[in-house]
Design a protein around this nucleic acid. Structure first.
Lengths: 209, 209
DNA sequence: GTCATCATGTAAGCCGTTACATGATTGC
DNA sequence: GCAATCATGTAACGGCTTACATGATGAC
């Protein structure tokens, strides 16, 4: 029952959408987290082994190349059909790939950690990326907590630009703007989530508009 | 000649503006990096010791409380005069404070690492905060490198929102917007730096707006 | 009398980064 | 032949986080 890292969270989340091998996982992580978060193999593979040891993921047989069609590897198959190079590679030998799948325990841990109020705030983006896995009320809570945090961050930013040169003032302005935009974004997320959550926003005597 | 960490960079930069003790340093770091980057003592003090071992900082006598006025502790003194509580604390005993000062080697290393092209991109904000310490051309280079990186990050973000739910799409949009805004900001910084850099922007035959 | 603030540290653990090692295949 | 891509790992190192330890003082 160890706590999932940011990386673990991302891996587990991606595996929900389908079984993947390490190399492909790295590419998906890059496009999910942005290309410059560069998850290296040196952290990816140990993370996978960690998750495997914990029983959160398991390796399955590599069905691709032998039986190309399989579950969520459909996208890969499309490219497979279009690209002659891939076909060639598959027919001849390719280095053995270890394909990972998320276990039930892994799925449970993922949904638990996604909604964990004590979770790392740096993983908020990842949590949003997979928040559809959460029940509506927990999703709403996730957004609300973030909102409060960002608002607090904004409130804490007072009278700091005395004795700051132009560059630092520009930096502070930029960061303030960032926080304001994030606040607006989270508010939008909250609004979006509220329409899907039956409870928790029954402000009685409200304004009909 | 070890490479300064993000934290080392921030510490050194703050010490340029005046000698400080650890506790005060932590507060300054919080307002510089944002309150939720929470530099804890568990990382601050080891970092200070590291810097001291390397000869980048040195401890000096705590002039405050004995001789309240001293160099860059002026701001503290102002509060000191206004606040009776502080006066009382200072006159009676207070736990011994270790006041750190930046050595010449530390200053040299700081300006070197601020302009280092191989430096960590995550420390860009800190670099900007102290970029006035750089010669104009290196400052401009710093901004330009960032610009290229952000632009590359934007270029790398293509066709990723297939099979994404509303929340993830919203996240991607938000992150895209962030990148665009950062690009605009960095462009502004570049423009600002160009007016101060004599060389390097002599685009001949230019457009007179 | 107890809590918050000021003030400085140590120790364990863990995760990520970097560099190294291996090996097949495709394209130039 | 050489580089690039695919593919999976190991080993060392270092820094950050968390928790713990200590101790004075002022406010309620």
């Amino acid at each position: 029952m160890l706590k999932l890292t940011m990386l673990d969270l991302a891996i587990s989340g991606l595996l929900v959408e389908g079984d993947l091998h390490g190399y492909e996982l790295k590419k998906r992580l890059a496009e999910l987290l942005g290309s410059w978060s560069s998850v290296s193999f040196g952290s990816l593979y140990p993370a996978l082994r960690r998750l495997e040891r914990g029983g959160y993921v398991a390796t399955v047989e590599d069905v691709d190349a032998a039986t190309p069609m399989s579950g969520s590897l459909g996208a890969e198959l499309a490219a497979f059909r279009r690209d002659p190079a891939r076909r060639a590679r598959a027919s001849t030998g390719r280095r053995a790939r270890k394909v990972y799948t998320l276990t039930e325990a892994g799925h449970a841990q993922l949904t638990h950690d996604l909604g964990d109020p004590n979770g790392d705030e740096k993983s908020f983006a990842i949590r949003v990326a997979f928040c559809r896995l959460l029940p509506p009320d927990q999703r709403l809570e996730l957004f609300r907590r973030r909102r409060d945090l960002v608002a607090a961050g904004l409130a804490g930013r007072v009278e700091r630009d005395a004795r700051a040169d132009q560059y630092r003032r520009s930096l502070f302005e930029f960061q303030d703007d960032r926080l304001h935009r994030e606040l607006a974004w989270v508010d939008q997320l909250i609004a979006s989530a509220e329409t899907e959550s039956p409870t928790d926003h029954l402000t009685p005597g409200g304004s009909p508009s």
